[in-house]
Design a binder for these strands. Sequence first.
DNA 1: GCAACACATAAGCATACACTTATGTGTCGC
DNA 2: GCGACACATAAGTGTATGCTTATGTGTTGC
Lengths: 104, 104
Amino acid sequence: MIEADIFKALADPTRRKVFEKLAGGSLNASALRDGLEISQPAMSQHLAVLRAAGLVREQRQGRFVNYEVDPDGIATIGTWLARYRAYWPKRVEALADLLKDMDQ
Amino acid sequence: MIEADIFKALADPTRRKVFEKLAGGSLNASALRDGLEISQPAMSQHLAVLRAAGLVREQRQGRFVNYEVDPDGIATIGTWLARYRAYWPKRVEALADLLKDMDQ
DNA sequence: GCAACACATAAGCATACACTTATGTGTCGC
DNA sequence: GCGACACATAAGTGTATGCTTATGTGTTGC
């Protein structure tokens, strides 16, 4: 069950901050530490959790490792959330429009 | 930060099962225990966590307490997920359509 | 009132988890 | 090759969390 890994990964506030940083584009592990008061090993462990959950994927570039949002994780949350569309309130109707033009 | 409570609540597999049961309609605490091998106090504690997170709301009916999905929690996840619409893969495009006609 | 019921809360305990320090692996530039 | 760098992994530790048993609160029916 990969949903378990996803929600567990997002349960940690630091990992959510990291993930939300990546929403703006790919960054390497050191850049992700900026602003967050966290040790290098701690960040490495958090990134491992996010990657294991399928929320993030990595790309080695020399001695740097670039991380970016993995669409697979997003898709899993999206399809999970779709089960509850009957309970979606009207005020979030705009969200559906946003989702519609995701590929430009 | 209510997002913290939401993701923490959904990180537990039992609570996700409970929440997914409620996707089909409201149920009382005893009915929610059916199928899940869980004690009465454990269920009560899980429901308290889900309610504190805004994922579930209760409605007393005599000595029963009916629980149902709280649209507020769903909306919070939805708006959070909207930040990542750039990474939404094409294959989940259908989800957007589902969200569009949520109010019939 | 009182017994049975539906659920909530309290207290204690075992495990999971996020951190730390220390060390390992791989790359770059000289 | 070798030192500096970017990151990963190992091992240990304090705290959070989900469970248990026991008890409390409120409702129903007699």
